[in-house]
Every structure is written in structure tokens, then in C-alpha cells.
Design a protein around this nucleic acid. Sequence first.
DNA 1: GCTTGACCTGGAGTGCGCTCCAGCACCTAG
DNA 2: CTAGGTGCTGGAGCGCACTCCAGGTCAAGC
Lengths: 139, 139
Amino acid sequence: MKIGDLARRSDLSVDTIRYYERIGLLPTAMRDGARQRQYDVSILAWIEFLGRLKATGMPIRDMVRYAELRAQGDATAGERRELLARHRARVRAHVDDLLACLTVLDSKIAGYAGAGSEEPSDDADRSHDADDEPIHRGR
Amino acid sequence: MKIGDLARRSDLSVDTIRYYERIGLLPTAMRDGARQRQYDVSILAWIEFLGRLKATGMPIRDMVRYAELRAQGDATAGERRELLARHRARVRAHVDDLLACLTVLDSKIAGYAGAGSEEPSDDADRSHDADDEPIHRGR
DNA sequence: GCTTGACCTGGAGTGCGCTCCAGCACCTAG
DNA sequence: CTAGGTGCTGGAGCGCACTCCAGGTCAAGC
């Protein structure tokens, strides 16, 4: 597989793939006769996993750290497990935080009750919640 | 309240408060005799709400949009409700995504089973999951 | 009266994660 | 033989959300 094919199949751009290789997220690709990168389909699983780490907010340097450990083989399994476990804990905490924010958001939205989609209506006296106050007028 | 006090009480830096005012996230502050910003405690509720929007991943330009609508008064209540409702939907979707990622993460971690905290052990033959393959050796 | 410290402004700088570009090599189809 | 498409490299540029800085004003405490 050439880099363009991989880009199409992985939802990364060609530039991003080369960037990921430069920083060590992707293995240094094998080259064909014309020095063009050649990929095995198996790279897709790794990219997909990286996508999940990214989706869960892991900074790239941590992903790089994980990739380095992976490249060092089985001896680093414990460290990798720990890294993922710590990350999992952070993600869980973040989800809890988001859920708490969601309930705040819900009550806030509920405060705007009755304000139909495109219709400002004349419900001009709603004070809906506790977070809106005085109001800011431009300088 | 002066800007330094507000910074202490809001977990924003003084610079961030001024930045937020510049871009329209915070109302143009009243000044005292020495042209220093003076804040009412009520600003804290607004900042806290902004913090929740930020925590849920709303881009600053959308927060600014919300702040603008708020400043325009009750007539924009419907639009604000819509904005928050769309945001809530995105957050919910993101939470679902995170939960899905969490189960992937969990099974991945389970794959490293037995690899105790600081102890690499000699479990060198674990293939734990489907995402790890060939391995990347530096150039 | 002098120092200290909080505040002011405008603008430059930072770190992250890409994204784009110039200028060149190579392959394939017409 | 030529044109178009894909790939290559090194390096510059970008959008975001701050963060820092120089050079200045002002009020209070010693």
C-alpha cells in the first residue's frame, strides 16, 4: 500500500501520516524501488488505536512514548499497561466531569423553556437560571 | 473586586481575564478612579459557566457568540437555547464516543494482564490483543 | 519622599497538532 | 515524447488559546 492509499483508508491526510512518522508515532516505513513508502495493512489497526488514544485526549507526546515502548518489545509490557491504566483513569474522570456539565447544561436549557426553535416569542421575563445576571453592554 | 482578587477566586490568570475581556467573553469592566478594573462578585457565576462550556469542549468563538447573544438581552433567548442544545448534543455524542473508547482501552489493558506495576516479569509471550503487530524498528 | 506592589496597555511569543508549499523524482498512459 | 499523477524532502505557516513582556501609572506604607 502506498501513502495515498493508506491516507484514504485511515482518514489521515498524507501530510499527517508523514508527520506521524517524523515524530515517531508510526514506524519508519519501508521504501520501494523509487524510495516511496510501502505499508502493510496491519498498520491500519495501529492507526485506529492511535485514533482512540487521540479521541480520548491523550497528548501526542504520550502516544509517542507508548509507541516507543511498543517498539522495544515485550519487556515494556508492564510500563505500557501502566501508561494505559493511568490514561483510562483520566478518561473516566473526564467523562464524569462531562456528565456533571451535561446536567448543568440541561438545567440551563430547561431555563430557556418554551423558546421554540426559530421563534423568539414574547417570553421576555424569563430569568431561567442563576448564572445569567446584569448583562454586558459594549463599552 | 480588583482583577487580582478575581483571578484568585476564579482560577483564571490575570492575563486570561484581560484576554477574555478583549475577545468579548467577559463584559467590558467598570473602572475605578485609577482606571483599574472593578468586578462584582456576580461575574464569578458567569466565569464558572464559561468554564463548563470550555470543559465540554466548546470553542472560544462559540462562547463569544453566546456571550454576545446574552448581552443583547431576552430577545435572543431562543437562539441561545438552540446554541446550548446543539452543544449538549455534541457533548452527549462525545461522551458516548469516550465510553466506547474506554471499553477498547479496558480490553487492551486486560491484554497486558498480570504485568504488575513496576515488574516487567517474564510473560514475554503475551499477544494480548489484535492491535499490536510486527513492531517498528528505528531506521 | 521613596519604595513596593498591583495594575495598565499594546504587542510579541509559545506549544500544540497539524497543513501547506516549492522544487524535484519517478511512473504510466496516450 | 509528453503530460499528468503520485510521491519525495525540508521548512514555513496556521489557528487556537493563552502567556509573557516592556515600559508605564498609581496608591499606600514606612
